[in-house]
Design a protein around this nucleic acid. Structure first.
Lengths: 225, 225
DNA sequence: GTCTATAACACGATAGAC
DNA sequence: GTCTATCGTGTTATAGAC
């Protein structure tokens, strides 16, 4: 490495501290959920502790900035997937399988070029079940509520036999299953341990296939008496 | 209140500090999950901060003591429910509905006289998905592993078409759904808000019915190609 | 913009008086 | 057994030098 290499790197570092903190925070969110300290993040990002407060005002400001950058592409990917399914179905109601897949695909694979954007939201949604906070509730209402309503609407049309209450129950079961399932999809996790390598935890396509099969059947269960 | 009332109360307090801390910790676990501080617990229990260390050695010792007292009745209730379902089925494989109900009932209703014993374990299992710890893993292996194997075995017999991998996938989806669903079953939670009072979050029997219907159908989904 | 130093607080654990 | 007082460590946030 020459002196100019160092100069360039340092220059880039100085100019892009904000971006490096953002991207490092994303990684922390994906891997450890909301349980991060700005000390750990800034150290990993090669920045100073005070940089977070300078650039984002507070820890909450940093989190909001991350989600702000991630929500747009994610919601767009989800909306597009649902639109594609709708177009494919034509005048008929969208098949359950297609609805479920349209919702899950962006979460599991992420929008183009942001593979873990979905996981960030899943982590936050799950963390908010374990320990609800004002911030968590606000973020969910802000970023997740619209898509939830779209999804509920599609389910109602695809499952006209079910009462509104039953739609809500099953929607909630589905989301719950996805949240807790995907939070555990890592080598050394509970699922990996229990299944003794029988299932490939890293195969996202397989996760999606199995989830779609299971959840579609659950959603289609006969209505209660 | 007479002086003797106070004396009696104080005497009882003195003698039963250990028990009061245990029971207060249970309530904290049910309501807030693993995220408790011994300061908050002892204050609520009317005991001194140092009492936890005196009686249980450490925070971990306190948690282990709570689970030790709760695991026995819970595991017994689960084993009995599964045995009843087995006896009812006779030589036939146990129907899926009965398997699911046998597993869920003790968690949702708790063993006789310990209504929230199940919720304590659910909270801990879910917390360990969000943020795995050595303690959490140890507790799960110790208290939840045996019943998991029993359940997997019953599912294999009831669903002979499925590969072992598919059994594991669906088992995991089921447990995940239950964990995240029940963590949210409270007034003001996400489900309650989203369903706008359409579903009764406090009706445990209804929760069980809906869960059994949804999960049984999911488990019974046709096997993959 | 970046850093050091520090304020202000919460936590678990423990020594030592009673 | 119970208490107070304190230690050591972690956290966010901020003041002020550079």
């Amino acid at each position: 490495m020459s002196a100019s290499t160092f100069r360039n790197r340092d220059s880039a570092r100085s100019l892009e501290t904000r971006e490096r903190i953002l991207s490092t925070t994303e990684n922390f969110l994906v891997q450890n959920g909301l349980d991060l300290s700005i000390r750990a993040v800034t150290e990993e990002a090669g920045a100073n502790v005070a940089a977070v407060n300078y650039h984002f005002g507070s820890k909450e400001g940093l989190l909001r900035a991350v989600l702000e950058g991630v929500a747009g592409p994610l919601n767009q990917a989800r909306a597009e997937a649902l639109e594609r399914a709708k177009a494919k179905a034509g005048v008929n109601p969208i098949p359950i399988e297609d609805i479920v897949e349209a919702v899950l695909h962006p979460y599991i694979f992420g929008p183009e070029g942001r593979e873990n954007a979905g996981m960030i939201f899943l982590r936050i949604a799950l963390a908010n079940r374990v320990r609800p906070t004002d911030l968590g509730r606000a973020l969910i209402r802000e970023y997740l509520e619209p898509i939830a309503q779209q999804l509920l609407h599609a389910l109602r049309e695809a499952l006209p036999d079910l009462s509104d209450a039953e739609i809500h129950w099953r929607y909630h079961f589905m989301i719950s299953s996805v949240l807790a399932t995907l939070a555990d999809m890592e080598v050394g996790g509970r699922f990996h341990t229990l299944s003794k390598g029988e299932c490939d935890v890293t195969d996202k396509a397989e996760i999606l296939r199995q989830l779609v099969r299971f959840l579609s059947a659950g959603l289609r269960a006969p209505r209660g008496p």
